Simulated scan of single mutants.
Amino acid sequence: MSDESKPGTPPDRWADLPPMDPGPPPAAPARATLAAATAAGRFRTAAPSAAGRSATPGGSAAAGGSTATGGTAATGRTVAPSPLDPGGTRYPHRVHRVLREEFPLTYDPLLRAWVLSRYADVATALTDARFTHGHRPGDPPCARSHVDVDEAELRSVAARTAHVLARRIADRPHADLVADFCHWLPSGTVAAAVGVPYRDMMRLVRGRAAAALAGQCTGQIAVREKALASFLANVLADPDHARELHAAPSGQLARAWTESLRRDPPVQIAVRRTAAEVRVSGGTIPAGEPVALLIGSACRDPERFREPDRYDPLRDDPGQLTYGTGACPAVLLAGFEAEYALRALLDAMPRLRLADGFRPERTGLITRAPRSLLVRPGG
């Protein structure tokens, strides 16, 4: 079992959603059981074989859809698990697997939204015009709003900042890369890129001023911090990966970075709303409905990825969903930060390894990343 099976921390608050999401959904009901929610008529299941059926919250499921009160879905389960259930904090991939296999479309009373968990559905919802109120760095609307950037300068900024931070911890007997490195690199590169003194940027980085200075996308510091922490955790978990990637060309490092975004996306749940009726796996979502997209589930869908739970830096079937594929300074910068973070750390600490007995523990439900990354800089 992977390290993610360990107990985690309480789920992230909706207020902590990064700017790529449309903001908090309506307040969730009191944490009554899902059974109680279904008994109140707010929840209906959709069997995987129900493609083409329509269902609405509290309404009737056409063509034989069944309620969770007094009936069961075709799979034999009565109630779909919720991503917000306590078990989802400890190991969300178990919940995701059940949803993908048995409830590809279900209404979650805790999220107050329809839930999509399969790769094909989530990938479509992130870009399809029938889903509104969303934003990802790198999506076409985002790309059209940016001015041209100097990629060489962004690379230089990321490299300089990473090497300064790495040298600060190189002589320590132990360090936490999350607190001592990942927390500082994204904000430091933004500060340098926009010409703001670093001490001033750190005062602004958690507020709206960061986005005002760096733009909506580049100002998403927390997302890049979490993505970087997961990337370093994935690479350092296997000393062979670290050695091979240290001297690897940029293209190979970019592939390893994309694979980390695929396996451990920093944003696990994104929220959209349907602008029109949309048919998906398991049924049809009416227009005007909120939809929770389980990015963490989609990126481990075995129908899309072979051995989806394994981190494979040489994977040749990329499909990360954290960022779009268009031109965006934030997407470029995140990739440069990952590349030069690894190079700088291993340049300054060639024997860098995880602390004895330490295994990274990823926490969070809305956003997710290692809480700490304890290392021995001297090996």
Rank of each mutant, 00 (worst) to 15 (best):
L177R: 01
L116Y: 00
P7W: 09
V95I: 11
T33L: 13
P10A: 07
A287C: 07
V196L: 12
H146W: 14
L84V: 07
R199V: 05
A15L: 09
K226W: 13
A222F: 09
S156Q: 10
D171P: 02
R263K: 11
R300C: 04
V147Q: 15
V278W: 03
T124L: 15
A233G: 04
P239W: 04
E277I: 03
P290D: 06
Y91G: 06
R44H: 09
V122T: 05
A28D: 06
D121K: 00
A170D: 10
T363G: 09
A270D: 03
L228S: 02
C182T: 08
L294P: 02
A298Y: 01
P83R: 00
R243A: 14
Y107D: 05
R42P: 01
R279G: 11
H146T: 00
P350W: 05
I169M: 15
V149F: 14
H246D: 09
H93Y: 15
R243W: 13
L236E: 05
A292L: 00
A175W: 03
R206A: 13
T363D: 12
A330F: 04
A62T: 10
Q220L: 07
F231T: 01
C142A: 14
K6I: 10
R304W: 12
T284I: 10
A74I: 02
A338E: 00
L204M: 13
T89N: 14
G52N: 08
